[in-house]
Design a binder for these strands. Structure first.
Length: 189
DNA sequence: GCTAGGCAGGAACCCCTCCTCCCCT
């Protein structure tokens, strides 16, 4: 199965009120993380980045000042995605709604995609007990990637890709079948 | 902890609705 694992950093939690400031993605085929096939860009928001978000993500005005505008960044991301199935942690309620809202705000034409929420992999594997946040999943898998910085999309996507690989291998070792629901979504054309 | 939004699981109850917690920046 051809997957693109991705992560967004944003200026807040509300797709209606906040903006994307960073996109990172990494490709996975048949259970292999293709570390040479990555995508990463900062995105220039129309509003200033709140101080608490700069503190949380490390992303400041200096990072996004010359970055592509949202439309340009989302089209480039779409090209990278190709015909892959997208994967994001809490993507059903966070990343995909942010992409939908950003496309709508900038009147960007969209195309259908399928996506998997990696929260569902965690719930499938460990049931309702305990948390399913990325930190909790990492702890359960005893996973530590010292070079991957949390809350930087490039670091989070490395961590997420490895957690997805490990969870998937426990649920469907041959990587041929998808162990959780694939949802319909849309991204920029 | 707040923002938005409503999954998933459990309780109460008998089949759907309500409630609480969750998860993302």
């Amino acid at each position: 199965m051809h997957l693109v694992i991705f992560d967004l950093e944003t200026t807040g939690l509300s797709p209606a009120r906040h903006e994307i400031i960073q996109i990172a993605a990494i490709r996975m085929r048949a259970g292999r993380i293709l570390t040479e096939e990555t995508f990463a860009t900062f995105v220039q928001p129309t509003q200033p980045i709140p101080a608490q978000i700069s503190g949380y993500t490390g992303i400041t005005r200096a990072h996004v000042g010359d970055a592509p505008r949202p439309a340009e960044a989302l089209v480039a991301f779409s090209r990278f995605v190709g015909d892959a199935t997208l994967v994001a942690h809490n993507g059903h309620r966070f990343d995909l709604p942010f992409i939908h809202a950003t496309c709508a705000r900038h009147a960007l034409p969209v195309r259908p995609v399928t996506y998997i929420d990696s929260l569902a992999l965690s719930r499938q594997l460990w049931g309702g007990r305990g948390g399913h946040g990325l930190d909790a999943v990492m702890a359960r898998l005893c996973l530590s990637l010292p070079d991957a910085r949390r809350h930087d999309a490039r670091g989070d996507v490395q961590i997420l890709a490895e957690t997805v690989r490990q969870m998937w291998s426990q649920l469907s070792p041959d990587f041929q079948t998808c162990p959780v629901t694939r949802n319909p979504g849309s991204i920029a054309q």
